[in-house]
Nucleic acid binder design. Structure first.
Ligand SMILES: [Zn+2]
Ligand SMILES: [Zn+2]
Ligand SMILES: [Zn+2]
Ligand SMILES: [Zn+2]
Lengths: 165, 165
DNA sequence: CAACGTTTGCAACATTATAACAATTGTCGC
DNA sequence: GCGACAATTGTTATAATGTTGCAAACGTTG
C-alpha cells in the first residue's frame, strides 16, 4: 500500500496553501486575469483545509476581516476561481474546494468522507475512459462531468474521530 | 448503432409512466410501505417527462389540483420516494427524476442534455468497476456515488430544438 | 487627464430546503 | 365499533443557498 494521500494524514498543509497560491498567480498571469485581493483571499480561505467550504462560510470569514462582503462578492470571486480551474464546486455539498490539479487538463473525481468532511481529488484515466465509453454508447457528447463519491476515508475507518484540518 | 434510448426519441411515454407506477406499487407492497395519494401523485408528476423536476415545480403543479401543498409536503414525498429508490436526485440541477431501474441494485449514471433537459439514466458495470478500483487505490470505502454527465444528447446534436417530453 | 472596461459595493430578491408542532388518518388489539 | 398508538399530512415560520440590477471605485491605455 503506497503512502496515504495528504488529506488523510497529518501533513504540512501550509505547503498545500503556498503551492495553490503560487499556481493561481501563475495561471492568472498566463491568462492575463487579475487575481485581485478578494479573489486571492477567497482562494486562501478555501484552502484553509481539505474540507469544502460553503459560500456563506467564506462570507462569514470575510466579514470578520474588514472586507465589506455581501453574497455577490463571494459568488463572483468563486465564479472567477471556477473559471480558471482554481477551485471546484462539490454539488452534493453545495460547497467549494481547492483544485489540486490546477493548470492540468483533468477530470476530477472527488472522494468525500462523510465523517471528517475531507475531500480528496483524484485523477483517474480508467474512470474517465469508462465514462467516455458509456456516453459514446448512447451517442451522447459529454461536456462536464460531476463525479462525487461519498464514503469513509481510511483515517476515519481506522477510528479517528476527525481528520486533519 | 443500436436504437436510441427512450428519452432521445419519440416514444409511448405513457408506457414509461405506467411501468413506473406499477413498479412503485410493487416495491412499496414488498416493503410494507404506504404509497399514499400524495406520494403517488408526486411520482407521477416527476414522471411526466424525462426532464428532472424541481421540488417547487412539483409544488406548483400540486397547487393547481386541490391538494393543499406546502414545501414540506413535497419534500416529504420526495424523501419517501428516494428512500425506496423510486426517484433520484440530480445534485447538479437541484431536481428529481424518476428511476428507470427501480428495484434493481444499480449505480446510476445520468446523462443530462443541457439543450433539451432530458436525462437518461444508465447502468454501467465498467464505470462502476473503474470507480471502485480508483477508490480502493486510496483505501476509501464508497457509500454513495453521484455521477452526472452534462452535455448534448444525440437528438439535440442533430439540430432539433427540443427533445421529447 | 479622459475614456473605457473591469471589478466591487450594495440592496433587494429568488430559489431551495428544513424545523417545529398541531391535526388527521390508518392500524391493531380489544 | 372503540381506544390507543404510530404514521402521515397540514401549517407557519425560518434557514440556507444563489442571483439581479445598478451605482461607485478602480485600472489600463492612449
Ligand atoms: Zn493540505
Ligand atoms: Zn474521514
Ligand atoms: Zn418516457
Ligand atoms: Zn437534448
Amino acid at each position: 500500500m503506497p503512502e496515504r494521500a495528504l488529506p488523510y494524514r497529518p501533513h504540512n498543509h501550509q505547503a498545500c496553501v503556498s503551492q495553490a497560491l503560487a499556481d493561481a498567480r501563475h495561471i492568472c498571469r498566463e491568462h492575463n486575469a487579475r487575481l485581485t485581493a478578494i479573489r486571492e483571499r477567497v482562494l486562501e480561505l478555501i484552502w484553509q483545509s481539505h474540507k469544502p467550504l460553503g459560500a456563506y462560510d467564506i462570507l462569514a470569514q470575510l466579514g470578520t476581516e474588514g472586507h465589506n462582503a455581501a453574497p455577490p462578492t463571494v459568488y463572483r470571486a468563486l465564479d472567477f476561481l471556477l473559471q480558471y480551474g482554481l477551485v471546484h464546486r462539490i454539488s452534493s455539498l453545495n460547497a467549494f474546494t481547492g483544485c489540486t490539479h490546477a493548470g492540468q487538463k483533468h477530470q476530477g473525481v472527488f472522494l468525500i468522507c462523510r465523517q471528517c468532511g475531507n475531500v480528496l481529488e483524484l485523477e483517474s484515466e480508467p474512470v474517465a475512459r469508462a465514462i467516455d465509453t458509456a456516453a459514446k454508447t448512447e451517442d451522447f457528447r459529454p461536456d462536464e462531468i460531476t463525479l462525487e463519491i461519498t464514503g469513509l476515508c481510511p483515517r476515519c475507518r481506522a477510528g479517528a474521530e476527525t481528520g486533519t484540518d
